[in-house]
Design a protein around this nucleic acid. Structure first.
Lengths: 193, 193
DNA sequence: CGTGCAGTTGAGCAAATTCAACGCTTGTGG
DNA sequence: CCACAAGCGTTGAATTTGCTCAACTGCACG
């Protein structure tokens, strides 16, 4: 059911305000959803990785845009067929509702993140990334500093400085800019509250 | 259907992590939902006024607390009976889903707000309040500066200063601290983007 | 007529941003 | 194979923004 589509890194999956024809599942790679304000500032709403579902709207239009962070395999499923299924199958209907609730959870967590200090935001971000990674204390970042900054509501400089600070304090290790070892998750947890 | 309950200003309607037994509708007054962090910081998630519905969770526990901002009339409806209805009635099921989607919309708007400057946050807040008020350009704030600050992720001092600045610039008029006239909504709209 | 709370205002400070320079890696053309 | 531009990330200095701490005002309530 649905169609598997590959997306090259940086390519658009859908745009904000476009008709929401499909719902998407990540089979491989990482996707970002975002909005761009008139003055050029970009807010990244979420990153989605393997097994995550995104692009489900209750209205007829997407309210964020979606792009491939790196090369992705995406499963696209017609929204109309899902809705048709849901109308006769309570279990499916409940699962669609549940997906929206999961998005709500995501948004609320992100909201809580955005009222914190730069250190706390980075701590939360690293722990979140670590949870999604295979090795619990080793992260391979698929996204750029700019992506992280736009996700956390900070500048790339602040992201960079905060990470080097963590590194100086031996909380993390940064063999390369995209590769991070968590050396003191306890401190990160405390920072992220 | 359901029970009408009055809540005095400041009284708790439910606490975070409590079992979500009811879903609530505001018949009169204003409600705030919030979370308190270990260090005492409080984040207000949303304000709900007449005809708004709050406290609907897909899990079994509330994840925010809810309090009456001022004296309220609240209709409490058993969640279990709504869910029972939904299981046999697709229209009800769809409306429950829709309510969660509306919450998601709220959370995303709030997320966008929290990445902006103090001026922009206040501008968005004032316009949001104005939309809910009877007279389009006149606001009677039900909540304190502390509530506003915790909603916008600012301090009361910054809220106060920004409002007086708007007042000096003739964007608003402040006959009393809880009563605001919008004198230049265009500027506010531009600020809020 | 005080007392207390909510809101405002000011001064100094801390945090994050801006602007700018620099280093490292990568890819391309000579 | 080397030189060199381009992009990404880091670092530094100056500036801006919002926060902290403190004093003060006005209003409501006893």
């Amino acid at each position: 059911m649905g169609t598997v589509i590959p997306f090259a890194h940086g390519s658009e999956i859908y745009g904000a305000n476009e008709a929401a024809e499909n719902v998407y599942a990540v089979l491989g790679g990482v996707v970002r959803t975002y909005k761009v304000l008139e003055d050029g500032r970009r807010q990244i709403g979420s990153f989605y990785s393997t097994d995550d579902i995104f692009g489900l709207e209750i209205g007829d239009a997407h309210d964020f845009s979606a792009e491939a962070v790196n090369d992705c395999k995406i499963l696209a499923v017609k929204r109309s067929s899902l809705l048709a299924l849901a109308s006769s199958n309570n279990e499916i209907a409940r699962q669609l509702w549940s997906l929206t609730a999961a998005e709500l959870q995501r948004a609320r967590t992100h909201m809580m993140l955005l009222m914190k200090s730069a250190q706390e935001r980075l701590a939360m971000f690293l722990l979140e990334m670590a949870k999604h990674s295979i090795a619990h204390a080793e992260i391979d970042l698929p996204m750029s500093r700019q992506d992280i900054a736009d996700y956390l509501g900070l500048t790339i400089e602040t992201v960079s400085r905060t990470l080097t600070q963590f590194s100086r304090e031996a909380i993390i290790e940064l063999p390369t800019s995209r590769h991070i070892f968590l050396r003191n998750s306890a401190v990160l947890s405390r920072l992220s509250e």
